[in-house]
Design a protein around this nucleic acid. Sequence first.
DNA 1: CTTGACCTTCCTATGATGGTAAGGTCCATC
DNA 2: GATGGACCTTACCATCATAGGAAGGTCAAG
Lengths: 149, 149
Amino acid sequence: MRAQLPTEQAVAKSQDCYRIGQAAQLTGVTAKMIRHYEALGLIPKARRTSGDYRLYSMTDLHSLRFVRRARQLGFSTKEIQDLLGLWRNQRRASKQVKRLALEHIAELDRKIEALGAMRATLANLATHCRGDARPECPILDDLGGLPLE
Amino acid sequence: MRAQLPTEQAVAKSQDCYRIGQAAQLTGVTAKMIRHYEALGLIPKARRTSGDYRLYSMTDLHSLRFVRRARQLGFSTKEIQDLLGLWRNQRRASKQVKRLALEHIAELDRKIEALGAMRATLANLATHCRGDARPECPILDDLGGLPLE
DNA sequence: CTTGACCTTCCTATGATGGTAAGGTCCATC
DNA sequence: GATGGACCTTACCATCATAGGAAGGTCAAG
């Protein structure tokens, strides 16, 4: 479990190069997902060592952290692609970014509302269920459609 | 588009038999999903006609509506399997049903909370974004990790 | 040279749903 | 009795983000 700081690593570090496992540790994005994002075109193809190992610079790590943070906020990879484009574009208008953010907020609101409606319905049913050893159960009655048929 | 009420259909109806398309219409579950639920073992394998068409009775339709309603409430197919078991078991204890319901409510709460946290963070960032033609953008700054590094 | 940590690619799976393609059934109408 | 059309069948692929594993290669230390 000792970090391999010797030769290769020392060279890598001095050259601002990290292999995928290190990049994963430093960004919180799994190596698996880093490769996946590369395949999706979300991040550029990594440089490779002579042994075909991927190499990442600090800039790359920065991008990976960006992606992770955006994922934490629920953006899809497609949306992240757009956000990354704006992030890298010095001539972007903040209006564009804000629009994406507001759209995503609206999407989150839709999901929250849908889940809230489920929760309310189910909580209501659960309230009326005695929850004892007897079989009578308004929850199952509702699912079975008894009240509606 | 005329419903085929003649011979086969008349017979089917008189015998409490519906083909998958009719079952889909009557239950709101797509034919696709009906087959899927059967493959999952959620509903029993349907009887078949001599031509290998699936046939559904009113009881089957009832089960399908149960599944649909449970899906609307966000239960997974695995959970629905348990609910169906309880529904069909006349000796069930309502306690068991209520436990499943409360667990699911807790799960919904977790999801709602997670989405709500995303929403709050993003809304906060959006508030501070001017949303004009200039490039400065606190949203991108956050995603890029500027405030944390 | 071997060992072990790390890397590579490729394939598989998840969960609920939708799509499509190639082909069979069944009934009505010509 | 053949045709057309609505409906059905199975089988495969796609979505979305993520994880797991197998088989094999790299590299540095012992």
